[in-house]
Simulated assay, not measured.
Amino acid sequence: MSLQRDPDARGDWLSASQTAQAVANRKLSALDAVEATLKRIAAHDGVLNAFTDVVAERARQRARTIDAALARGDNVGPLAGVPFAVKNLYDITGLPTRAGSKINRDRPPAARDATLITRLEAAGAVLIGALNMGEYAYDFTGENIHDGPSRNPHDPTRMTGGSSGGSGSAVGGGLVPLALGSDTNGSIRVPASFCGVFGLKPTYGRLSRAGSFPFVASLDHLGPFARSVADMALAYDS
């Protein structure tokens, strides 16, 4: 059974482009966009199991900052108020970087965000949390023995593909319009295909890997997931 859209939740299922335009034009507040995202995660992630961490208060504070800047007439960037999430091998300030592993939860919390998180937030986006993945990115199915399998949004009895399974599930299930993953040997391309969304493995080195947990440093690529080519381009170029 596929997940259905919730027409009563403000901001749900808007594309990244639509959200950014609505927030920039002050037809939708960034805080409302974040609250709608958190509502949808609470309602549906119990089935999808896409998220391992939700940074709700950080997201709310970031959204309030964006709304205040817009009220002053400032330009907050092309991704104004757009919620996004990242595979849990990206450093997030205050959280240990799991890389899908149990033992990594005992690592010290990251002191700073990964470079791509910083870049997206500088463009106006709002980080919502970290996403499920195959342990150490060595996975093609979206299963994780510690956090459980991420589930396909079109049929939760089926796999998402991996290792960026949480990224594919979160975007395909409408929890966030944008997500970041990594690809060494198909880990963006496989879940994007299985979950019916767009995923990009960029040219090697095109996007910074600073602040990410490596699998094979000479082969790792970081890249975005989105539900449209337009949203993919918006994230990639930001």
Results as ranks from 00 to 15, higher is better:
residue 2 S to I: 13
residue 3 L to T: 07
residue 5 R to M: 13
residue 11 G to H: 01
residue 18 Q to Y: 01
residue 22 A to P: 05
residue 23 V to P: 13
residue 24 A to H: 12
residue 25 N to P: 00
residue 26 R to M: 12
residue 27 K to H: 15
residue 31 L to E: 15
residue 34 V to C: 03
residue 36 A to N: 01
residue 36 A to K: 00
residue 38 L to C: 11
residue 40 R to M: 15
residue 43 A to G: 02
residue 43 A to E: 08
residue 43 A to Q: 13
residue 47 V to Y: 00
residue 47 V to R: 05
residue 53 D to F: 08
residue 53 D to C: 02
residue 57 E to R: 05
residue 57 E to L: 12
residue 63 A to R: 03
residue 64 R to V: 14
residue 69 A to I: 04
residue 75 N to T: 15
residue 75 N to H: 14
residue 77 G to P: 10
residue 78 P to Q: 02
residue 82 V to L: 07
residue 85 A to S: 13
residue 85 A to Q: 02
residue 85 A to Y: 04
residue 85 A to V: 13
residue 92 I to M: 12
residue 95 L to W: 06
residue 96 P to F: 06
residue 97 T to L: 04
residue 97 T to A: 10
residue 100 G to K: 02
residue 100 G to F: 02
residue 101 S to F: 05
residue 103 I to G: 00
residue 103 I to S: 12
residue 103 I to W: 03
residue 105 R to P: 01
residue 105 R to W: 02
residue 105 R to C: 13
residue 109 P to G: 09
residue 109 P to I: 08
residue 109 P to V: 08
residue 115 T to Y: 07
residue 116 L to S: 04
residue 117 I to H: 02
residue 122 A to I: 05
residue 123 A to V: 10
residue 124 G to A: 03
residue 128 I to N: 00
residue 130 A to R: 10
residue 133 M to R: 06
residue 133 M to A: 05
residue 133 M to T: 14
residue 134 G to E: 04
residue 134 G to I: 00
residue 136 Y to I: 01
residue 137 A to T: 10
residue 137 A to K: 01
residue 140 F to D: 00
residue 144 N to M: 09
residue 146 H to R: 04
residue 153 P to N: 04
residue 154 H to E: 03
residue 155 D to E: 14
residue 156 P to N: 08
residue 158 R to H: 13
residue 162 G to Y: 02
residue 163 S to K: 01
residue 165 G to M: 08
residue 168 G to V: 12
residue 170 A to I: 07
residue 171 V to C: 07
residue 172 G to F: 06
residue 177 P to S: 03
residue 178 L to F: 09
residue 178 L to E: 01
residue 178 L to R: 02
residue 181 G to D: 03
residue 181 G to Y: 06
residue 182 S to R: 05
residue 186 G to T: 06
residue 190 V to Q: 00
residue 193 S to A: 15
residue 193 S to N: 09
residue 196 G to W: 11
residue 197 V to D: 00
residue 200 L to R: 09
residue 200 L to H: 15
residue 201 K to C: 11
residue 204 Y to S: 08
residue 205 G to M: 09
residue 209 R to S: 01
residue 209 R to I: 12
residue 210 A to C: 03
residue 211 G to R: 11
residue 212 S to C: 15
residue 212 S to N: 12
residue 214 P to E: 11
residue 214 P to F: 13
residue 219 L to M: 15
residue 219 L to G: 00
residue 222 L to Y: 05
residue 223 G to R: 06
residue 223 G to V: 09
residue 229 V to K: 03
residue 229 V to T: 14
residue 233 A to I: 15
residue 234 L to M: 13
